[in-house]
Design a protein around this nucleic acid. Sequence first.
DNA 1: TGATAGATTTACATCGTGTCAAGTAGCGAG
DNA 2: CTCGCTACTTGACACGATGTAAATCTATCA
Lengths: 199, 199
Amino acid sequence: MSSSEPVYGDPETRSRILQATWELIEEGGPGVRLVDAADRAGVSRQAVYLHFGDRAGLLLALVQYMPETLGFREQLAYVFDAPTGAEMLERAVKLHSTYTSKIDSVAQVLEAAQYQDEELGAAWRDRMDASRVAHRAIIQRVADEGKLADGWTVDNAGDLFYTVTMNGPWRELTRELGWTPEQYAENLTRMLRRSFLTE
Amino acid sequence: MSSSEPVYGDPETRSRILQATWELIEEGGPGVRLVDAADRAGVSRQAVYLHFGDRAGLLLALVQYMPETLGFREQLAYVFDAPTGAEMLERAVKLHSTYTSKIDSVAQVLEAAQYQDEELGAAWRDRMDASRVAHRAIIQRVADEGKLADGWTVDNAGDLFYTVTMNGPWRELTRELGWTPEQYAENLTRMLRRSFLTE
DNA sequence: TGATAGATTTACATCGTGTCAAGTAGCGAG
DNA sequence: CTCGCTACTTGACACGATGTAAATCTATCA
């Protein structure tokens, strides 16, 4: 699934381009030009095309690169190590908040670009689906413990949990309304516990 | 605040262009070219520039045009007519769900474009702020009735209410996960009642 | 020495936006 | 009836970013 691309060129150069693109998006918003990314990486604009084919390919590679460099898998494993469903939920919200604070700028670009390139859109969908499955699994765990509040199915509660903790609300709360990631985690956890858990 | 623009030309032509743009965005996604909007409206591409200045101006006009043609003010008044805070909350979620189903395609474009044009961004921010104030007012009403659940301030609960009912989650639930607007309203209302209201 | 991979340089086609200038169709007032 | 205004058209063009192509350079390794 991941290595369908031939992967041209020096891996170090490749990483430098990805890193430069990442930084530029964080600093300057969505309007990054390929020439700027190339300049910061210390390569020519054409090198970008040699490595990634086109703009969408570059962003596509970034989708993989970010969680890898941030060790997302390990952090997710910690969430699923929690002793109870309630604890899982709390850890999940915390992870979401801190992780999103690191990748949200790029995520925003990808959300916008997904409709312009089919392959990129599919890759983004994959990530969303994986997230949804993970959130559902947490609710399933809660239900298995008999703690899911009345009125919910695992599907309904899982989908709501997943969507309510998407980037949009996080972005608005932290970027526009001045919440810290900690405040976000605290308040959202409170909301979700009251909504989905008994007692 | 609204009539800073000189408003060139025939209002009917202006409406036709806006309507055409709206339709094209709904049908074909964000990548609408001005020439397509002009064609559908039966005018030349330059007419669009005469009326709206540039692409951002067109979208800016659309921000005003949509709620006007859909009678948003009146529907909002109905929400605030509710006898209790709980009823207000329910009506607000319902309105949000049905209204969003009509404007979300365009909203998506505006969300993306707001970072490319300062004036458009400001206009979009204005709408968001108004929405936030409205949501907060509903929570304030709940609090005035002594029904706000323990652990919340009006600010925290209001901001959460506002952000959680933003377009992102609605879009994901209805467009990708197959929820109907009614299911959205029902489940989100349940979640918010349990989170914010006593009893 | 000579091939090969990685990258550069220069040039160019394309596409959408935005600008400019000249022209035209309709219409009300003198 | 024609002057003059408003609304819009036509055609041309500059600009900027993406993407493509071909020739060149420069290490390194056999």
